[in-house]
């Protein structure tokens, strides 16, 4: 039985993520783990995350999971969610500047406190709720998901990768920001598919069927 590991580093709604993955992959084993060898042996890895960048990085280091996360991102189908997407870059502006995992070059930036919408209306921070995800590439993880479908977001920072060829989707909230990236066996999203009803479940299902090509 193929094994999907949801990486536990004490940050985020792991149970929700695991339950949603179980729901779409009843024929695969889903475990929540902070054990490096279990993660290394997994067939697929989900890297969730919530909270502050500083805490995420510290918790990963305390649990000695940094290397196995980076290795997984090079070897097998890997799905980053929310902070699990942001900290793949090498730097975040959060907490006065945090060095992150550095899998890709780029910065994680703050939306700013004076964000304005199309009619010059004030936009609240965090960006919280259901927004349209504009797919910019064809990808197995977008299969059976209509372009511009709404997904649930909650974040105050957004990813700005240097290599724009990574971009798999964008989203508008005062600015046009990167809401998904894809490269080789890695796919990562800013939104929470585990909380995005049918389209979110479809994305997770696509991930559980994806071999990373």
């Amino acid at each position: 039985m193929a094994q999907i590991v949801v990486i536990d580093y004490g940050m985020g709604n792991l149970r929700s993520v695991a339950k949603a993955v179980e729901h779409v992959a009843p024929d695969q084993s889903v475990i929540i783990s902070s054990d490096a060898s279990e993660i290394a042996n997994a067939d697929r890895v989900v890297f969730p995350g919530q909270g502050a960048a500083r805490d995420c990085m510290r918790e990963l280091e305390d649990r000695e999971l940094t290397q196995v996360v980076l290795n997984s991102a090079k070897e097998k189908p890997f799905l980053g969610i929310c902070m699990g997407m942001q900290i793949l870059l090498n730097h975040s502006e959060e907490n006065e500047g945090i060095e992150c995992l550095g899998l890709y070059a780029g910065n994680v930036r703050f939306f700013g406190n004076d964000l304005k919408g199309e009619q010059n209306e004030k936009l609240k921070i965090p960006h919280m709720g259901w927004n349209n995800v504009d797919q910019t590439i064809d990808h197995p993880l977008w299969q059976n998901i209509k372009n511009h479908s709404r997904f649930y977001f909650v974040h105050s920072y957004y990813m700005d990768p240097e290599d724009k060829s990574l971009v798999a989707a964008t989203c508008d909230y005062g600015i046009n920001f990167v809401s998904a990236i894809a490269k080789d066996n890695v796919f990562a999203v800013q939104c929470h598919p585990e909380k995005s009803a049918q389209d979110g479940l479809q994305l997770l299902k696509n991930f559980t069927l994806w071999n990373g090509d």
């Binding site: 199309e118 936009l123 960006h127 709720g129 259901w130 927004n131 909230y173």
Partner: peptide, 8 residues
Amino acid sequence: MSLAKRII
């Protein structure tokens, strides 16, 4: 198209 108002 932008952020939807939520019904809870």
